[in-house]
Nucleic acid binder design. Structure first.
Lengths: 254, 254
DNA sequence: CGATTTGTTGACTGGTTTCAACAGTGGTGG
DNA sequence: CCACCACTGTTGAAACCAGTCAACAAATCG
């Protein structure tokens, strides 16, 4: 199944026809190599994206040259929905590994959203979800120490992986170097290294290879990072019945 | 003019009829006194809100008892739009001063959004705006020092005030104590006090009374906090013409 | 006017950064 | 296949920023 549809079906019922409508928006695919820029802050935008394969990330560069990473995108995630409201990108996005994106021009997407309020509602909900997750991240970054903050980061990475494969194994493949993680959390790479080893010492995780770790005690990791699983609490029933029905009624009304 | 409409008209053309449709959603008004809870994380929700008067804020309490403030709401801001997707509140909201809210039940709101894609698009855009602002806040909190971070906070407060009155004076009324600001930025109250005085020493701001300050050098303040005015860059023309038109066409099509 | 809350100041502590040197790893080309 | 090189992660020492604690001052409220 297409990763985008797989992700959506985690929290919303979507018919085969609707899935096709969504996928029809993505008229182009493109490969990116590790480190390649997808777009840069300020550039004029005419498409949005979904990740087919690989890791991508959004970031900003500060006046002093340091980098703040805003978000990491895995297979199935949507990139650049904000291009619907800003013609110019508000952040920069690059590839964190070799990968592949599907591109959807904005115009047909706008029409599709207008014509299909149910799908529109799903995208709306997806957007709210990222918003709530962002608030959790602010909390983690602003109020937790480096050790806890890193635990939060890893918990989130696991949870997001599980969205794509429920039976995701306890090995977590993380093709992100420690400078990268540091720039997510507002820490220094050196300190991330220390906290990483502290998690290993405490028996919470184990290193399998350079780019992958094994989670030994997932529950403890989540507790350290005070991680709330917002996906689980997303009220899909309500969303489907009330919001979806309201939209569907109205579109068949007129 | 109603503060909610005044805020929206800052970045979207809205007809008198549409404004009335929106305002009709708010069937109740209620007064809150300083410190009173509007709702608490986990509580079942059946309405969303807009601020008529006073200051409100969203926050979370961490396991160690510390508080992270997620957002501050002024007159015209919307509270609890996420209740459309979660039946239970994901954060807590309280009054930061005496104030007044207008309440809108969710059901009619859903129907209105489904039936009027133009208004729906406006709300969608409003949501994207808060999302982009959140990313800026993460950057400020995670990567800037306390001095810069405070400058960011004040810049944002000014900008948001100006959304309601373009001719807003250089005096900024801030009925928020320093512990409150500290909890926004993930700092200690003591340290906020020190950075505040540093801004005063440097001639950037001046204290008028306990609860209000005067901005002496607004541009410098923004520069210190690396503040980007996202409202200014919101592409209203594109939003109005393309997205609005697409929605309007489709609703008159069928 | 006294009581409570809020802001200020100083000394101390602790977490995090920075710098520098080094080790391990992977990749590349000879 | 090996030698070399670049990149990434590790470790220690020192500096720095921010937190904590405590005492006090100032403002606000009843």
């Amino acid at each position: 199944m297409h990763p985008f549809i797989r992700k959506i079906s985690n929290f919303a019922d979507i018919s085969a026809g609707e899935a096709d409508m969504l996928l029809d928006l993505f008229v182009t695919e493109r490969d990116y190599s590790d480190g390649e820029a997808v777009f840069t802050e300020g550039e004029e935008q005419t498409t949005f994206f979904t990740v087919l394969e690989g890791w991508f990330y959004a970031y900003a560069i500060l006046p002093d040259g340091s980098r703040q990473i805003h978000d990491i995108y895995h297979a199935g995630d949507v990139i650049g929905l904000d291009h619907l409201s800003w013609s110019q990108a508000t952040t920069s996005v690059s590839a964190a590994s070799n990968g592949r994106l599907a591109l959807a021009p904005l115009e047909p997407a706008r029409r599709m959203m207008a014509g299909n309020p149910h799908l529109s509602a799903i995208l709306y909900s997806l957007h709210m979800l990222t918003n709530v997750l962002l608030l959790d991240r602010i909390t983690a970054v602003a109020r937790l120490g480096a050790y806890e903050s890193l635990a939060y980061f890893l918990s989130d990475a696991i949870t997001r992986r599980k969205m794509i494969r429920a039976d995701y194994p306890s090995e977590l493949y993380l093709p992100l170097n420690q400078k990268f993680i540091a720039d997510c959390l507002g820490l220094s790479a050196v300190h991330v290294s220390r906290q990483f080893n502290k998690l290993i010492e405490n028996g919470v995780i184990r290193r399998l290879s350079r780019a992958s770790i094994q989670i030994l005690d997932e529950e403890r990791l989540r507790k350290i990072g005070d991680y709330h699983d917002r996906y689980a609490n997303l009220d899909t029933a309500r969303f489907e019945t009330e919001l979806g029905r309201a939209f569907q009624e109205s579109s068949s009304d007129s």
